[in-house]
Amino acid sequence: MQKLKTATVTWITYNNCGTFLQAYALQHVVKSFGYENKILDDAPHLIDARPIYRKVLSRLKRIFVSGTRMKEVRSCYTSFREEWLETDKDTGDLKKVSDRYDLFLCGSDQIWSPIIKPVNPYFFLYFTDKKKVAYAPSLGSTKASDEWKSCVKPLLQRFSNISVREQQGASLLSVLLGRDIQAVVDPTLLLSAEEWKPLCSDRIMPVGRKYLFCYMLSFNARYIERARKYSHRHGLEFVLMGLHREYEGLSDNVLWGGPSEFLSAVCHADAIITDSFHATVFSILFRKPFFTFQRFKANAWNNQNSRIENLLDRLSIKGRFVKDDNIDDVPPIDYSKVFPLLDKERERSLQYLSSSLKN
């Protein structure tokens, strides 16, 4: 019997560890169910609403300022994409894309975020009348404008099955669409630590050298210094992921790499401090002591804290989300209590995805 051909829309152009790893995870699971799957190249369909002068400055900075370190990082992402992701690069003509596949999925990450303007209909599968399933796209925010709602409502009404990553997003869309919307776990949580280990690069530190891994999406000097002091107090070397040029020289051990290097750093770390949703996810999967610092102020217009708070609340470890610098009095994590909750959420989410693809 011929396998059903499925295609996924999600971000795979932006170089972000979590972005690439969630794309891999969903594809891995869909294929394990017995379907063919390709991730559609989103590059031809991205909307850059920045003023022209900002686009030019960004391009010039990338060419002349980024330096060899960031080129090294881009090379790591290219290697990961070629080795671990099955993509369809011929996506310029979306009518032909629609004809090639039997079913389409919206993958995870913040492809449905109300904060991102304008709304990009590509990530709502406007171009096809084939069956459409959404697995864990994230709104990222607890609020959405009336303009966003009126724009996405007719697009979402064409989906046969919709789930999102956060409960707040599920509630918002349930009211908007007048139907039940499920909250499911991020695709990365559908896989176990053992399933992630083959994707790890070689160890970033020799065996026996204990370290704290610091992964900060936003450059925050205070948070980085807090992490450094914690590592020194606990006798750990300080390893900082090089996500920005400004990180050069902030540690004797700055890690420049992509998703595989990130996974290896988490897998072998003795503690982790981050402000990232996906670094939080992998800290949990690999059963690490971790702290997640608040990245956005509670009243900020672009507040995306709900995705982390929702995850930690589901697993009854809300205390790991640090809203100030105090991490000295936080009790250790009892993973024997966390994983039964995670296993239950994982099984429920896998059942949703499996039944959505079948029905």
Rank of each mutant, 00 (worst) to 15 (best):
200 C>Q: 14
336 S>Y: 04
57 L>A: 02
241 M>E: 03
112 W>I: 08
18 G>N: 05
283 S>Q: 06
49 A>V: 01
121 P>N: 02
206 P>N: 04
70 M>A: 11
39 I>D: 00
74 R>E: 00
170 A>L: 03
76 C>H: 11
30 V>I: 15
76 C>W: 08
184 V>H: 00
317 I>C: 05
232 H>I: 15
65 V>C: 02
208 G>S: 13
116 I>C: 06
62 R>Q: 12
245 R>H: 08
275 D>Q: 04
218 S>H: 08
275 D>C: 06
231 S>I: 14
183 A>P: 01
316 S>I: 05
157 Q>M: 10
3 K>D: 03
350 L>F: 13
23 A>L: 04
276 S>E: 15
152 V>M: 03
70 M>G: 01
221 A>L: 12
21 L>M: 07
18 G>W: 07
322 V>M: 12
174 S>D: 10
336 S>D: 12
271 A>L: 08
116 I>T: 14
107 G>I: 05
351 Q>W: 14
284 I>L: 08
117 K>G: 07
133 V>W: 03
300 A>Y: 07
232 H>W: 15
48 D>Y: 13
66 S>D: 11
172 L>D: 13
149 K>C: 12
120 N>D: 13
55 K>G: 06
38 K>S: 05
82 E>Q: 13
96 K>R: 13
319 G>M: 14
145 S>A: 01
44 P>T: 14
188 T>F: 01
199 L>W: 05
291 F>A: 06
328 D>N: 06
292 T>A: 07
102 D>C: 00
324 D>V: 10
173 L>E: 05
264 S>Q: 09
346 R>P: 09
156 L>H: 01
157 Q>T: 09
242 G>L: 05
224 I>R: 07
96 K>G: 09
318 K>R: 14
82 E>R: 09
250 L>K: 08
62 R>H: 10
226 R>Q: 13
352 Y>K: 02
53 Y>D: 09
180 D>F: 10
93 D>E: 08
180 D>S: 03
324 D>P: 03
333 I>D: 00
73 V>Y: 09
260 S>Y: 14
242 G>S: 04
59 R>A: 13
217 L>I: 15
307 R>E: 07
85 L>G: 00
172 L>C: 14
66 S>Q: 08
72 E>K: 04
141 S>N: 13
329 D>Y: 10
174 S>I: 15
248 E>K: 12
131 K>L: 12
157 Q>S: 09
272 I>E: 01
339 F>V: 11
324 D>R: 02
3 K>P: 06
38 K>Q: 07
6 T>V: 05
227 A>S: 15
2 Q>I: 15
8 T>F: 12
209 R>H: 10
15 N>W: 03
220 N>D: 13
66 S>T: 10
13 T>A: 02
47 I>V: 15
230 Y>G: 00
58 S>H: 15
94 L>C: 01
280 T>C: 10
18 G>C: 10
197 K>S: 09
145 S>C: 03
192 S>A: 02
324 D>F: 08
268 H>M: 04
317 I>S: 03
47 I>P: 15
10 T>Y: 00
279 A>L: 13
256 W>K: 00
154 P>Q: 11
99 D>G: 01
359 N>T: 13
14 Y>D: 08
264 S>L: 12
351 Q>Y: 12
320 R>D: 02
223 Y>W: 12
245 R>C: 06
104 F>H: 02
